[in-house]
Simulated assay, not measured.
Amino acid sequence: MPPLAALRAFEAVARLGSLSRAASELHVTKSAISHQLRALEEDLGVTLLHRGGTVRRARTTEAGAALLVSVQQALTLLETACRDTRAGAHGRRRNSLNISANPSLAALWLAPRIGRFIELHPDIDIQLFLHASQDPAWDAQDIDLAFLHVRALGPHLAAPGDIPLMTETVVPVCSPALVEPGERDDPRVFTRHRWLEEKHIDSPETDWRTWRPRLGLPDSASQEPLVLSGLSTVVAAAAAGVGIALGRAPLVDEELARGRLVALTPGLRMAGSWGYVMRVRANRPMDASLPTLVEFLAEEGRRAPAW
């Protein structure tokens, strides 16, 4: 049998399409990957990858494609066996799930629902990790399920196999103590209070410059908003009465339901450019706990906001 390192190198290059990316993933040099591939092809007596020439991405030959399927299955079995052994050594129960989300989704939407899920399924343990980018620490934190913020069009797209969770709607929100109930449909209230804005790229609906003409406010009513990082920070400031924020529902639904925030001019709410998907770890063996969690959260994502 060829060395396992050579088979891992072949699988990484075939999956990533690049010797450089495979070398980075496996923490070896590009020349080491190239040497392992040549040795593997000589050992098996076939060419496994098309590379060089005008083709920039390495592609499997017919023989390579057939081998790749078996190699990936074998590596998955080995990874699963090692993970189960490691989990047993460190006390992780089989009915346990590691999930990952960005801080705003985790704090505002996911954490309360995970609490309710655990009440319904006390036999399933869940550990929630945070990621600040689109790249959860799949291996380092042994992530089973990640929640990713994606656009309909743009650099951060849903991938094949991703499970839709929810879309976003933007609506102005504030503390109920800041604006009297009879004034909450009056656009003039926006001229009397500070504007809070989330630092969020490629999202015009969370920018007050988009909302000023939508609310029919004159140029003289424009003001420099207080820009804060992260929706959870913006929501905390709004709930404290600092000003009026552009909230992203359903992330603000819990705060609205509890009465810590109220929606202003809800008839003028604006569809968001972004949404969330659930992504299962690649090649993860399925058990009963993960589909149960996915189904529960998918149903939560379909619920209409109470406000």
Rank of each mutant, 00 (worst) to 15 (best):
Arg279Trp: 08
Lys199Trp: 10
Trp138Met: 08
Pro176Lys: 04
Glu42Gly: 01
Gln223Cys: 02
Leu130Asp: 01
Ala236Tyr: 06
Leu226Gln: 10
Thr60Ile: 00
Arg188Ala: 14
Thr167His: 08
Ser31Arg: 12
Val235Met: 14
Gly216Ser: 02
Ser34Leu: 13
Leu77Ser: 14
Arg258Asn: 13
Gln36Thr: 00
Gln127Ser: 13
Ala152Ser: 12
Asp202His: 10
Asp219Gly: 11
Ala14Asn: 03
Arg284Val: 03
Val189Lys: 05
Arg56Thr: 14
Phe117Met: 02
Ala237Ile: 05
Ala221Cys: 02
Arg86Thr: 12
Leu264Glu: 01
Leu68Val: 02
Leu19Cys: 08
Pro172Gln: 07
Ala137Gln: 14
Leu226Lys: 02
Arg192Cys: 07
Pro164Met: 03
Tyr276Asn: 10
Glu198Met: 09
Phe296Cys: 07
Leu145Asn: 09
Leu77Gln: 15
Val173Tyr: 05
Gly241Arg: 10
Arg116Ala: 13
Gln141Thr: 07
Ser31Asp: 13
Arg56Ala: 15
Pro112Asn: 06
Ala132Cys: 06
Ala239Leu: 04
Ser20Ala: 13
Arg281Phe: 02
Asp287Gly: 11
Trp138Arg: 09
Ser34Met: 11
Glu180Arg: 13
Ser203Met: 10
Arg279Ala: 03
Trp138Asp: 07
Trp195Asp: 05
Ile163Ser: 03
Val71Pro: 01
Glu295Asp: 14
Leu78Gly: 10
Arg59His: 12
Glu224Lys: 12
His121Val: 01
Ala87Val: 01
Ala132Trp: 11
Met270Arg: 11
Glu180Gly: 05
Leu145Cys: 10
Thr167Pro: 01
Gly88Ala: 12
Glu198Ser: 03
Gly301Asn: 04
Val234Ser: 07
Ala306Trp: 01
Thr167Arg: 14
Ser20Val: 11
Asp186Thr: 03
Ala146Tyr: 03
Val294Ile: 15
Arg212Phe: 06
Val170Cys: 11
Pro250Val: 07
Ser31Val: 13
Val170Thr: 12
